[in-house]
Amino acid sequence: MSAAGKWGDLPMRILSAIVMVAVGIAGVWAGGLWFTLLVACIGGGMIWELSRMLGPDRERMAVPMGLLTTAALWGATLIPGEAVLPVLIAPAIVGATQLHKDRLIYGAYAAALMLACYGLIGLRVEHGMMWVGWLVAVVIASDVAGYFVGRIVGGPKFWPKVSPKKTWSGTVGGWVAAGIVGAAFGGLPLVLLSVATAFAGQMGDAAESAIKRHTGVKDSSNLIPGHGGLLDRFDAMMGAALFVMIVGSAVGLP
């Protein structure tokens, strides 16, 4: 591949990334209702994309499902804890029932997205801005290191049947970068958690790649220039957020 082929999309990716980082920082800093609405809107956008990918013959369901998801994520923050799970799972079930096929894929992935978004909101509310900053830094560092190391070093593919562009060099580079972030934020326990979180993010990326290959689409949408859709950009974040939520609920965060 020529140098232009390797790096041709880099300027647009950087510009879009700057805008996303600025919006993300503003949302995390504001916290409260603003951060909740930001995550809820992103979640709604991701479910809109998922509905379009898995139900191309049911395109009219995509916008209502996106709106329902946004409302459910916002509403889940206002109700008692025992009622949260049914509210979060409801959009996944409703969407799955609208499809003629791939209902299990839709339901499972949509439910995971809902829980991940809710976990991200909970991380900001319960643990504060620094923990969200750590999570975002881990995912971004892993993604950026994986992108550059993978393209510069190359080598064997990590999971060619699911994500043919990902290499082992890029994957390991992402782990190293995540570990460095963990060291900057805390001690050894956070370094280990950062590496594990980066891996969870990479699995989130792989899960979305598998759905795209299954449906034969290149990008989940074209909402973000240079990055594709919201799922293309936030798939790793969702995998990482879901993992951190599970760890936090099971054993607590360091």
Results as ranks from 00 to 15, higher is better:
Leu85Trp: 13
Gly95Ala: 11
Arg233Ser: 14
Leu10Pro: 02
Glu49Asp: 06
Leu242Ser: 08
Met114Ala: 08
Pro80Ala: 15
Gly174Asn: 04
Ile105Gln: 12
Val28Glu: 01
Arg52Ser: 14
Trp168Leu: 11
Tyr106Thr: 01
Leu135Ala: 04
Gly229Pro: 02
Asp143Leu: 05
Gly128Phe: 07
Ala141Lys: 13
Gly32Met: 08
Val247Thr: 05
Ile211Leu: 15
Asp205Thr: 02
Met61Arg: 13
Ile14Phe: 13
Met129Arg: 15
Arg151Lys: 14
Ala200Ser: 13
Leu223Glu: 04
Gln202Pro: 03
Gly8Cys: 07
His227Gly: 09
Ile18Asp: 15
Arg124Cys: 01
Thr77Asp: 09
Ala96Gln: 04
Met46Ala: 15
His100Gln: 15
Met20Tyr: 07
Leu73Asp: 11
Ile105Lys: 09
Ala4Lys: 14
Ile211Ser: 09
Gly75Phe: 12
Leu135Cys: 01
Ala250Arg: 04
Ala241His: 07
Val63Gly: 12
Ala26Glu: 09
Ala26Tyr: 06
Phe234Pro: 01
Ile224Arg: 00
Glu59Ile: 14
Leu230Gln: 03
Arg151Gly: 07
Pro11Tyr: 05
Ala108Thr: 13
Val23Met: 08
Val136Gly: 11
Pro86His: 07
Gly179Cys: 05
Leu78Val: 09
Val125Glu: 13
Ala17Trp: 02
Trp34Gly: 11
Ile79Gln: 12
Glu208Asn: 06
Glu59Phe: 14
Trp48Phe: 15
Gly27Asn: 00
Val176Glu: 05
Ala196Thr: 05
Pro91Leu: 08
Gly187Trp: 00
Ala198Gly: 08
Asp235His: 00
Leu253Thr: 02
Leu78Asp: 14
Gly252His: 01
Pro86Cys: 07
Lys101Asn: 14
Val87Gly: 02
Lys218Ala: 10
Leu38His: 06
Cys41Leu: 15
Lys218Val: 12
Met114Gly: 10
Val181Asp: 05
Lys166Arg: 10
Leu104Lys: 07
Val139Glu: 08
Gly170Cys: 06
Phe35Gln: 09
Ile25Ala: 13
Arg124Thr: 02
Gly66Asp: 06
Asp57Ile: 15
Gly228Thr: 12
Gly43His: 00
Gly119Thr: 04
Arg103Ile: 08
Pro164Met: 13
Ile42Ala: 10
Arg213Glu: 03
Leu253Cys: 06
Thr36Met: 08
Met114Lys: 00
Ala72Asn: 06
Leu230Ser: 03
Tyr147Pro: 01
Leu193His: 00
His227Met: 05
Trp7Leu: 13
Pro254Asn: 05
Gly66Leu: 05
Gly32Glu: 15
Thr97Asp: 06
Val136Lys: 07
Val136Phe: 06
Lys212Asn: 08
Ala183Val: 08
Val28Trp: 01
Trp134Asp: 02
Val191Ile: 09
